[in-house]
């Protein structure tokens, strides 16, 4: 029973982080039609920034906020410097087939990932570091008994829940949120309604960048920080996004939790070595049985 509870709580906390990663991926996918493989590179980079600030004696919370801002800025930069020129270039190019159009931004995002990892290596000498948590990461002790969850688990779940509530309010209640949803659903009608779609696009990158940074900050305390340490999280986040349905924000959250539980239970009941295999199987099963994900729209996206 205790093992089950431990797996459950750890799965919830992990799943909450994956939900944020998936949310970041889905935001850019909906807003710009791109799967951003550089996302966890961005997270790694901003987590290094936070870590450097903390090492130099600044408070955790200052570092936390600065990392989020840096993540948002990094997202904006990627859109302005790479993705926007890209969408202009290959309109005129010979590589203009639908398949290539979807492929080229993916390649660009991989290039950005490589770039960020190299830069992090240069700035921080590629050293592996630990990253602090604002609260204890050991099992919480309540009334003399060790609980199957840690204070940091609760912290993570609380922060993620807060972020999800705010995001959902933003999309449902604000005009900008409506503009973003409209653009994601039907760009032409959105444009004809006077929505500036380029601004919506960059906003998707900004929010996604901040979300990725948050994921990095939450994941770092339970692993080490190195230029490539978050690559795995991207794979997991991608799986979560596909499981939930790439174009659904609630789906991203659900997908994140599902993947979190799968990983946690495999980890607790079998061995960490089975995690990759479990992810691969989960991904393939979802793609074969329900390619649009658990909460994705019915419309089949093929090309």
């Amino acid at each position: 029973m205790n093992l089950f509870l431990s797996a459950f709580f750890s799965g919830t906390a992990r799943g909450a982080i994956y939900a944020i990663v998936a949310l970041g991926l889905v935001l850019v996918w909906r807003g710009a039609g791109i799967i951003n493989f550089a996302q966890m590179g961005q997270a790694m980079f901003t987590t290094y920034i936070a870590s450097t600030l903390i090492i130099s004696g600044k408070s955790y919370w200052l570092a936390f906020v600065i990392a989020l801002i840096a993540g948002a800025m990094l997202g904006a930069l990627i859109d302005i410097l790479v993705m926007r020129p890209l969408s202009r270039v290959h309109r005129a190019e010979a590589l203009n087939s639908p398949a290539m159009k979807a492929t080229i931004p993916v390649i660009a995002s991989l290039g950005i990932l490589g770039l960020l990892q190299a830069l992090a290596g240069m700035f921080w000498v590629g050293q592996e570091r630990g990253f602090p948590a604002p609260v204890a990461i050991e099992g919480l002790i309540v009334a003399g008994r060790k609980m199957p969850f840690t204070a940091f688990d609760i912290f993570t779940i609380a922060i993620v829940a807060l972020v999800l509530v705010l995001t959902s309010l933003f999309f449902r209640k604000t005009g900008t949120g409506l503009a973003m949803r409209a653009t994601a659903l039907n760009q032409e009608v959105a444009k004809l309604s006077g929505i500036r779609t380029t601004q919506v696009r960059i906003l998707s990158w900004i929010i996604s960048g901040a979300a990725s940074s948050l994921a990095g900050l939450l994941i770092a305390p339970s692993s080490i920080l190195s230029p490539s340490s978050l690559d795995l999280i991207l794979i997991i986040g991608f799986t979560a996004a596909v499981v939930g349905g790439l174009d659904s924000l609630p789906g991203a959250v659900l997908g994140g939790l599902i993947v979190g539980y799968v990983i946690s239970f495999v980890n607790f009941y079998r061995s960490p070595e089975d995690i990759f295999l479990a992810i691969l199987i989960l991904l393939l099963v979802v793609l074969l049985v329900r390619p649009n994900g658990v909460m994705g729209s019915k419309q089949v996206r093929r090309v």
Binding site: W29, I34, I35, F37, A99, A102, T103, V106, L232, I235, F238, T239, V242, L246, E273, D274, F276, L277, I279, L280, L283, L284, L287, L288, P291, R301, R302, V303
Partner: peptide, 28 residues
């Protein structure tokens, strides 16, 4: 057989997962 129906970013992501998972089978 599994990837024939995927394309673009879906295929990229799935094959990336495969790239990670297959070598880990050696440990498994």
């Amino acid at each position: 057989v599994t990837a024939a129906r995927l394309s673009g970013p879906y295929l990229a992501g799935t094959t990336l997962v495969i790239a990670l998972a297959i070598p880990s089978l050696a440990n498994r």
